[in-house]
Design a protein around this nucleic acid. Structure first.
Length: 523
RNA sequence: GUCCCCUUCGUCUAGCGGUUAGGACUCGGGAUUUUCAUUCCCGCAACAGGGGUUCGAUUCCCCUAGGGGACGCCA
């Protein structure tokens, strides 16, 4: 008998931006569906009227799209899928229908208690050291009593009648193993709120059933809700899906991701210029490991090898910030530029991201980085173009240095703006500026370059001039090359010098050497 | 308060009764690159603590400590 096709879903509530925790849950669902050749469904859980916003809904979808986690069924698709609508707010009649079935079968009941009343009772029970469960006041109202209350226009919620039949529920979980729960500790919980909207534990069951979800992959925070959901499955006589509760992600302070870690919005990392594939790769490694131990993986490969049952139970840290810098900092709401200084430069994410950037197809790399080039603002507008040969060469030469695209702003001005030698020189550079042969080498190098007249100068030409200057002045090795490097670039580090000089262009090389000589002579 | 889950190098993790406890990032050292980065070697670094079970526990059980989650008309 063939296994039914795997169907997973990600079910965010649109009450804020998509953050790393949610995105990773989405990713696990997405990857698991891909690996199994199944379907990935996106469902919006917007039953909280007070907190759900349209803006958040768009942000979440936007982040999903950027990450490339395309859904097979869900909102904003030409063909949304056979089990829609995929926004819970549009599925009211479905929940109503099933809820009245439950009420008719006495598996659920109307509760007329007011919120104030319930809060008071809860406080009392807590004071007495009792578990804060519903006391069952409306549990056994007679039909007449109910009708009277209904007639007088009292509003009501619908509660599920728990622990009538069993007193233990076992959650069989692909990650957590078998977890037992005592249902006597679970009170009759609300399935339909007095505003008529379904509550989470109820809507999620109805939808997962209706949408034929086979595997529920979500954060372990939902584990203790699962017995309630299983009770509902049982009440309807429906088969449970397979459960997989994956570990939570914590911040650098070992606390669960929260507002304090506002910088964990997915959009922040897009703005910083991490390739989506790198971010995916990094997130996949949080709580999961590849079977072969290799950590650098393309998305295509992850889509072939992901298996939820390899997930571990312990929480993992989203460790991309420098703890010493973030200690007293409020990271939420910062722009990418403001956020960048707080990043830990040598994080595993940066390492992975650098590898992803270097593995990119050339055209893709240029396309991806161009918006960031434009943002830097130093490249003349008519040259910010994928076809511009010089820009291409500069970008392609620099790519090995980049962990994320926004870093291009550190390097680009060097190629596109005139420089002030006095300011560029740091301590290391000054060591060479003061070198006894610095000026004579710079002058001789400049003279040789100028002999070329209007002709282009190639890398080989530069190499020749460097060697010639060395012989004429009597310098070689480090003394030759470092002096010339500092003379032409103002820095002690950077690209291979002939490559760099060709990228710079003859005019700028001459200008720089000239200014360097002027400045050095005044010292 | 009650219930549930978690705890392996600083970090991400492998491990599923017998391993010199493995890998990756970071860090330190070296080689290559007449610079930096890359690349390549080498090294530092961990089973939270205490009891059991067992010939033998990182692994199984119990307790303690620490962390997280749930007990909502939030999801």
């Amino acid at each position: 008998m063939p296994q039914p096709a795997v169907r997973t879903r990600f079910a965010p509530s649109p009450t804020g931006y998509l953050h790393v925790g949610g995105a990773r849950t989405a990713l696990f669902n997405y990857l698991y569906a891909k690996t199994c050749g199944g379907k990935f469904i996106l469902r919006i859980e917007d039953t909280d009227q007070a907190r759900s916003t349209e803006e958040s809904y768009h942000q979440v979808l936007d982040s999903m799209r950027w990450l490339g986690m395309s859904w097979d069924e869900g909102p904003e698709l030409e063909n949304q899928g056979p089990y829609g609508p995929y926004r819970q707010s549009e599925r009211r009649e479905i929940y109503d229908r099933y809820a009245s079935d439950l009420v008719t079968q006495k598996k659920a009941f109307r509760c007329f208690c007011t919120q104030e009343e319930l809060e008071k009772k809860k406080a009392q029970r807590e004071a007495m050291g009792l578990p804060p469960v519903y006391d069952g006041k409306c549990r056994n109202l007679s039909d007449d009593e109910i009708q009277t209350k209904l007639d007088s226009g009292l509003s009501y919620a619908i509660r599920f009648r728990t622990h009538d039949t069993t007193n233990e529920v076992v959650v069989q979980d692909m990650v957590q193993g078998n977890v037992r729960f005592d249902t006597s500790l679970i009170g009759d919980f609300i399935i339909v709120k007095s505003d008529g909207f379904p509550s989470y534990n109820y809507a999620v069951v109805v939808d997962d059933h209706e949408m034929q979800i086979t595997h529920v992959i979500r954060g372990v925070g939902h584990l203790s809700n699962t017995p309630r959901q299983i009770m509902i499955y049982n009440a309807f006589g429906w088969a449970e899906p397979a459960w997989a509760h994956v570990s939570e992600i914590v911040g650098s302070d070992h606390k669960k991701l929260s507002k304090r870690h506002g910088a964990t919005a997915i959009t922040a990392f897009r703005e910083l210029g991490y390739p989506a594939s790198a971010f995916i790769n990094y997130m996949a490694l949080l709580g999961w490991s590849t079977p072969d131990g290799e950590e650098y993986k393309s998305v295509a490969e992850l889509e072939k090898i992901f298996d939820v049952s390899r997930c571990n139970k312990s929480p993992s840290m989203f460790d991309v910030f420098d703890l010493s810098k973030t200690e007293n900092a409020e990271l939420s709401g910062l722009s990418a530029v403001e956020l960048e200084p707080y990043l830990f430069a040598k994080s595993k994410m940066n390492w992975l991201s650098n590898r992803h950037i270097r593995a990119l197809d050339e055209e893709q790399f240029i396309t991806d980085i161009l918006p960031f080039v434009k943002e830097v603002g130093v490249v003349p507008e008519n040259e910010v173009h994928a076809k511009d040969e010089r820009l291409r060469s500069v970008l392609l030469s620099l790519r090995v240095y980049l962990d994320y695209y926004m870093q291009i702003r550190r390097y680009l001005p060097d190629f596109y703006t005139s420089f002030d030698p006095g300011k560029t020189w740091n301590d290391a550079a000054m060591e060479w500026v003061k070198h006894e042969l610095f000026l004579s080498l710079a002058k001789e190098f400049l003279r040789l370059i100028q002999t070329k007249g209007n002709e282009e100068i190639t890398q080989d030409d530069y190499k020749e001039y460097m060697n010639t200057a060395g012989k004429t002045i009597g310098a070689k090795g480090k003394n030759l090359f470092m002096n010339l490097r500092v003379a032409a670039t103002g820095r002690t580090e950077g690209l291979e010098l002939p490559v760099y000089l060709v990228l710079l262009g003859k005019e700028r090389v001459i200008e720089r050497l000239t200014r360097t000589i002027e400045t050095a002579e005044k010292l």
